[in-house]
Amino acid sequence: MKAILTEEQMALSIKRLTRQVAENHLLLENTVLIGIQPRGIFLSSRMVDELKNLMPHENIKYGKLDITFYRDDVRTELKLANTTDIPFDIENKNVVIIDDVLWTGRTIRAALDALLDFGRPAKVELCVLIDRRFTRQLPIQPDYVGRTIDTFADQKVVVHWQETFGKDEVLLV
C-alpha cells in the first residue's frame, strides 16, 4: 500500500482544480458542474463549496448523475443505482463532469450517453482527481487532473473521503 495523496495534498489539489475550472469558465454563467454517482460527488461537492468561497455571488449550477442504467456491462455485473439529480437544463451549457478516478474511461462513456438524454451541451469537459495513465479502454482524456499516476492493471486506487472514512487520502493498493 502506497499513499498517492495525503490529506494536505488532496486539499491543495482540489483547490487547484477548482481554480482551473473557474479560470476557464469565468463567471460560471453558462457552466454547470455534474458529479458522477456514487464516488465522484465527494469531489464535486468539495469543488462546489470551494467555488462558493471563490465567487460568493455566483449562482452555481450543480447536479449529480448516476450512470448505472447506461453501463455497457449490465448482462455481466449488476450495480445498484443511485439518485440522479439535475435540476436545470443542460442544453447549450458548458458541462464539467467530475469524478474521482479515471481508469478505463467506460464510466465517462456512459456519462456522456446519459448527458445526451438530458439535452445537448455546448461543450463537455472532464475533471478527475486521479488519472490512471495508460489504462484507458476508450479514447477519453481528462481536461483537469489532480494527479496523474502510472499503475498496473491489477493495482487498485482507493480514494478515502472525510465523509465516509473519516479522513481524506488516496492510496495505491
Binding site: D66, T68, F69, Y70, R71, V74, R75, L80, A81, N82, T83, T84, D113, A114, D117, F118, G119
Partner: peptide, 22 residues
C-alpha cells in the same frame, strides 16, 4: 428501491435508458 430510480428516469425529458439494449 430500484423502481424508485426508474420512476425518476420516467420523469425525465428522455424517458428511456439503454440498459437492456441487447
Amino acid at each position: 428501491s430500484t423502481a424508485q430510480q426508474f420512476k425518476d428516469v420516467l420523469q425525465r425529458p428522455v424517458k428511456k435508458v439503454p440498459s437492456l439494449r441487447d
